[in-house]
Write a protein that binds this DNA or RNA. Sequence first.
DNA 1: TACTTCTGATGGCGCTTGTCGTCAAATACC
DNA 2: GGTATTTGACGACAAGCGCCATCAGAAGTA
Lengths: 220, 220
Amino acid sequence: MKNTSQNTQQDKQTGRTYGGESAEERLARQRRQFMDAGLELFGTVGYRATTVRMLCKQAGLTDRYFYKTFSDTEDLLAAVYTESLDQIQSGVIAAINASASQQPAGDLIEAGLEAFFRAFENARMARVCWLEVLGVSPRIDTLYTSRIQQFADLLLDLGKSMLPDWRLSETETRITGIALIGAISQSALHWLLEDYCSSRASLISANGRLIRGLIGSLPR
Amino acid sequence: MKNTSQNTQQDKQTGRTYGGESAEERLARQRRQFMDAGLELFGTVGYRATTVRMLCKQAGLTDRYFYKTFSDTEDLLAAVYTESLDQIQSGVIAAINASASQQPAGDLIEAGLEAFFRAFENARMARVCWLEVLGVSPRIDTLYTSRIQQFADLLLDLGKSMLPDWRLSETETRITGIALIGAISQSALHWLLEDYCSSRASLISANGRLIRGLIGSLPR
DNA sequence: TACTTCTGATGGCGCTTGTCGTCAAATACC
DNA sequence: GGTATTTGACGACAAGCGCCATCAGAAGTA
């Protein structure tokens, strides 16, 4: 016999304070602990090798709280990925905007690349966002695609606003944006997989040349 | 009591013919069946979801023969990846060489890109080589990195031979090559994940412009 | 025809996983 | 202080995994 009591009874999701924290505060803290544990484990031992037990041990919580917030490890991966990419992305945008508002305006391409590769030096984030997230499931694939697309669109809009006579078709514009993201990503990925043995400056230089070359060869 | 007979006895790995096949022929056929099964399963349900049992069922063989040739599924993945990438790579090189030996010589960049994206339309191969192979293990990561590097080097050597005054440093040359591979890869990957909804021509066009732009902006 | 080798089918072992239930202790409310 | 809720620790369960052993029958060999 299911719980057939009044909804008013069920709806009291208030909970009560415990350990000096309200129910929402506890939930938020637990979520944060699992997010941190996810970034740590996904970014080191990898997503497929990470189990619920490991996450709980790392977070210092038990599985009950894991399932209270996330449906499974894939769910956590999506959350960690989203948060990490948000962070990287906003860092790049901020750096570009900061450079643009300088007097005189700085080199936006250089500034953006610099911010990106700096963020990428966080190996855990880099690993999660460019390695672990790939080939997990159709759902994660979709998330990955849409986020890359979003990042590309963001940069393209910025570029278009600075290059008044943009003549490429919508389709080619999107492909070009993704290709640029791919160029930067792949060189960054090799940087990571080779333990950052090249200098950041050389990565910025090579990718900067690529972008400037593209701009120079746009139809006019 | 173990088999303590003469080594000559153990060394007769000849086996005998069975079903009209010699021992080596059988082994080769079994290997091929598992390779095909691997490409099929890794390329559809994905590497992490593929089990030994599934591979055996797909190959129409039993696990005994799997372990006779491969140590584990990761071993098979490496073999399938290597074979698939070899195939794609040699196709691209062949197309470029064919175009170069035309009278008059064709557009090498166009020819290479055309061959690449045509090969990429094999979704199973594309998935294995650009999705499933990532983030599996350090060993596979190393394989991936070295193969991408090799592909980049191949194309760079070709490019350098056609651009006599190459002035980039060794480091920047390598990064640039990898970045170019990344640009092509990422646009191809999105093509795959979006079910090939763009036209091949638009991908070739966008990536061709990127490459030509780079060539135009090389130091001279 | 006898004997050996090879094959496919089946079942089982030990292990790990996700997931759930229980229970005593800690904490908060009245 | 008494009662209800929350917490952490622990164990248990079915399921699925890699891997191995067995065994009857097919295919070759003498």
